[in-house]
Nucleic acid binder design. Structure first.
Length: 477
RNA sequence: GGCGCGUUCGUCUAAUGGUUUAGGACGCUGGCCUCUCACGCCGGUAAUAGGGGUUCGACUCCCCUACGCGCUACCA
């Protein structure tokens, strides 16, 4: 047995057969939180032993998504496809200790047996036909270059116990566990062998992964002990489901992290929401940034229940994170749309003022862009609600006309001054201030909703404000 | 089919045998604030899957049933 692992070392081990999806991101997050909260290392391993389905493009997209989420790995990533020798040498070791054996059965033959068992409603299990073949015959068969796989010789009795950090003690009868294949007949290792070899090699202290692996854990523990190595500690995470309670998949809409990124979601909000899926800080705190998550995360507080991805709550959290960020920090997410003339301090100041006004009331980047666009261009249309409710007859035109005059005569154009002028105009006309405010909002923004009108007007300036009023007077009602 | 895991408001969750008329949040919804919207604040809606035990007492422990999910591949 090897030494006890003092240092916390965890790994996230995606297989590059698709995008990084929500479930994978959550697994990565919990690994990351666990590592950081224990001053440990967070490692990355690409499980690309399935040559058929693995694609290089996916590996780099996964890397990119992990970076976006801020999960920086502490050591060079390991690629399983480059480590075949090590797997095979472990397999050889297992054969030498009789913990594994050559299997010459044909896949088609096994398939047939499996189907027959199904037909008879019998439980299928490999019959261990090749387990007893003696050494001489094996040598001969190998010389005749028979194709073979390597199987693990699972004990036929006894029980395997997994002491899971989330699920507690879980027991499995060894005779329920098949003599599973560890090396395919094409000479490549399977998942079970590769995982154990790498977790050992990387000195992984805690394996934190989806609970679809809970049933695999006894197999892996068995390999570890056959190899004479103490297995890591395990923590399985409940799976994330779609709104219909089924495993999250494409038909549930956006499920890849890249899609959320493209949508303009804040990574902090995405992380915050993911953390709340299956984990709770045990009090009522819901809004947390990554540092607070690290500070409060405890693996024992992970739930055993699978959770359904709640898109609405994600959006709510995004809104909260959006308004809590400084205008400065928000510039990158809008600059692609609104532009940011190089080194122009004036424009940057303007942009920040705009963000300051709209960030409080936007939940998504889309809303941010939508509700902020009139700071950069004159409205080209007016929303229906505004037209019907606030500017439906020509009396509004004469009122606005009067306001326009008063504003043009005004010597300054500050928020306070504008309000003063508007209110006194309203008084002169004998109408409520609101009867001017709403039409003016519509004229200046094209919307019936917006931030405080007087702040908007100051920011737009006298020239733009009066231009838009004149323009509206021509076109409305 | 076998094995494993799970089941508290529509959703995320709290309450780890008594402090509970089961708490918070999202959503939906009534109101306040107000130049609109958002924020904020005050309310409302809504849950312990079913049945047996154990116990003075069960959301909490045990058993059964139902339902869901996972594994049962020369996928990971």
């Amino acid at each position: 047995m090897t030494e006890f692992h003092e240092e916390v070392r965890v790994r996230f081990a995606p297989s590059p057969t698709g995008h990084l999806h929500v479930g994978g991101a959550r697994t990565a997050l919990f690994n990351y939180l666990f590592a950081k909260s224990h001053n440990g290392k967070f490692l990355l391993r690409i499980e690309d032993t399935d040559k058929e389905r693995s694609e290089e493009g996916f590996a780099s997209e996964i890397n990119q998504s992990l970076r976006w989420l801020g999960f920086n790995w502490d050591e060079e990533p390991i690629y399983q496809s480059e480590r075949t020798e090590m797997y095979l040498s472990n397999a050889a070791q297992l054969i030498s200790t009789n913990d594994a054996y050559h299997c010459f059965c044909e896949p088609s033959e096994l398939d047939e047996k499996r189907k027959e068992a199904q037909r008879n409603k019998k439980q299928y299990k490999y019959d261990q036909k090749c387990r007893g073949i003696d050494k001489v015959e094996i040598e001969n068969r190998l010389k005749d270059s028979d194709r073979f796989a390597i199987r693990f010789a699972t004990p036929n009795e006894g029980i395997s116990v997994v002491h899971d950090l989330v699920y507690g003690e879980v027991k499995f009868e060894n005779n329920e566990i098949d003599d599973f294949i560890i090396v395919r007949s094409d000479g490549t290792p399977t998942y079970q062998l590769a995982v154990v070899t790498d977790d050992k090699h990387m000195a992984i202290s805690h394996v934190i992964r989806g609970d679809d692996h809970l049933s695999n854990t006894p197999k892996q523990q068995l390999i570890f002990s056959a190899l004479g190595v103490k297995p890591p500690l395990y923590a399985h995470l409940p799976l994330i489901m779609g709104p219909d309670g089924k495993r999250l998949s494409k038909r549930h809409g956006a499920t890849s992290v890249a899609e959320f990124q493209n949508e303009g979601l804040l990574p902090e909000a995405f992380l915050n929401h993911l953390a709340l899926l299956g984990w709770s800080p045990k009090d009522d705190t819901e809004f947390m940034n990554i540092d607070e998550l690290i500070r409060r995360f405890k693996i024992e507080h992970v739930s055993k229940r699978s959770a359904i991805f709640d898109y609405k709550k994600l959006i709510w959290l995004n809104g909260k994170h959006l308004s809590s960020k400084s205008a400065e920090d928000l510039i990158p997410i809008v600059s692609a749309e609104w532009g940011l003339p190089a080194d122009s301090q004036i424009d940057k100041i303007y942009l920040k003022k705009v963000l300051e006004l709209v960030k409080e009331r936007a939940k998504t980047r889309k809303e941010l862009l939508n509700f902020g666009k009139y700071f950069f261009e004159d409205p080209d249309s007016y929303d229906d609600k505004g037209r019907n409710k606030y500017w439906n007859d020509t009396e509004v035109n004469s009122n606005v006309q009067k306001l326009l005059q008063d504003l043009e005569e005004s010597d300054s154009f500050t928020e306070e001054k504008i309000e003063e002028v508007l209110r006194s105009t309203a008084e002169t006309l004998g109408i409520k201030a609101a009867e001017l405010i709403h039409p003016v909002r519509l004229a200046l923004t094209g919307f019936s909703i917006s931030p405080s009108l007087f702040e908007i007007m100051e920011l737009l300036g006298k020239e733009t404000s009066t231009r838009r009023l004149k323009f509206a007077l021509e076109r409305l009602p």
